[in-house]
Design a protein around this nucleic acid. Structure first.
Length: 281
DNA sequence: AAGCACACCTGCTAGC
DNA sequence: TGCTAGCAGGTGTGCT
């Protein structure tokens, strides 16, 4: 799935389910789902009997903070196809590819379902002085909560020859944007995806910042984007609707909604960019 | 040392 | 109809 808006929708669904609840049991059905742990047993032991203090998010990573003096957390990344689903009880049938299950003290279950297995979760102990878990220290500022001004973005682009779309997707530069939302953000800002990031002007950086500030909240309000393969659903299994507002992403060959020219597709960094050659320069 | 290519998986679709 | 190749929202590593 999932880029920042989808992860944020899942976090908002899950927070009231988890907050103040105690995890009475945890089970790992597929070791790869907790592959950063020394052993799945360590993950289960660290989580069992613990009460959830709060949830937060950094970029595409979901952070579940546990009560106690140790400042420890569970970090979840949904990868390409991960879902966190709430079941009202253990009796509800499990979906195929259910790899991790947390049983809560109210009888509900939180289930991690992930067909492609690129997602994972793990227990992390230390937090840095800013309150971020140490394993997430390499991430740049969060694109929703910590986005700065045009000057900040320009400083992230300065001296770089890499294409601006790839730079926007670089999680160490700015955290949370992926292939869908960089397509949409670049379209709205009128910037072509293959432009070298160092050549993007200050005015264009201002347009990109405004575009990020518009697109991410709108996508969250629409409960995320669910594309053709329909892998992304929220905590209750429902798809989002923001794909209905996509101007260019996955619309190559169809007309640009603004100027009518054909949306083009470009191979970039091992994936594909969609853009309007008329609106984006 | 920035910038690539590639590995890691499963499932669906388009095309033959 | 059935097979195969290609493609899909991600991150991390290792080579140049």
């Amino acid at each position: 799935m999932p880029e920042l808006p989808e992860v944020e929708v899942v976090r908002r669904d899950l927070d009231p389910v988890l907050r103040g609840r105690t995890v009475v049991a945890a089970e790992v059905g597929r070791d790869r789902a907790v592959r950063r742990e020394s052993a799945p047993e360590a993950f289960v032991a660290a989580l069992t009997g613990r009460t959830v203090a709060a949830t937060s998010r950094v970029g595409k990573f979901l952070v579940v903070r546990l009560e106690g003096a140790g400042h420890d957390v569970v970090i979840v990344h949904l990868g390409m196809s991960g879902q966190l689903r709430v079941a009202e009880s253990a009796d509800e049938a499990r979906l195929p590819h259910t790899h991790v299950v947390w049983t809560l003290d109210d009888g509900r279950e939180v289930r991690f379902v992930d067909p492609r297995t690129f997602g994972q979760m793990w227990h992390a102990v230390a937090t840095d002085p800013g309150g971020r878990p140490v394993p997430l220290g390499h991430l740049g500022p969060d694109a929703l909560d910590e986005l700065g001004d045009a000057t900040m973005l320009a400083s992230r682009f300065a001296g770089r020859r890499v294409a601006v779309k790839l730079r926007l997707m670089d999680q160490t530069a700015l955290a949370g944007l992926g292939n869908i939302y960089t397509d949409e953000i670049l379209f709205r800002a009128g910037v072509a995806p293959h432009r070298p990031s160092g050549a993007v002007t200050e005015d264009e950086c201002a347009a990109l910042v405004a575009s990020i500030r518009a697109v991410l909240p709108a996508a969250i309000a629409a409960r995320g984007s669910s594309l053709a393969d329909a892998q992304y659903v929220d905590g209750r299994g429902r798809p989002g609707t923001y794909q209905e507002h996509h101007a260019v992403h996955a619309r190559a060959g169809r007309p640009c909604p603004r100027c009518g020219r054909t949306v083009a597709r470009l191979a970039m960094g091992g994936r594909s960019a969609s853009f309007c050659p008329g609106c984006q320069r």
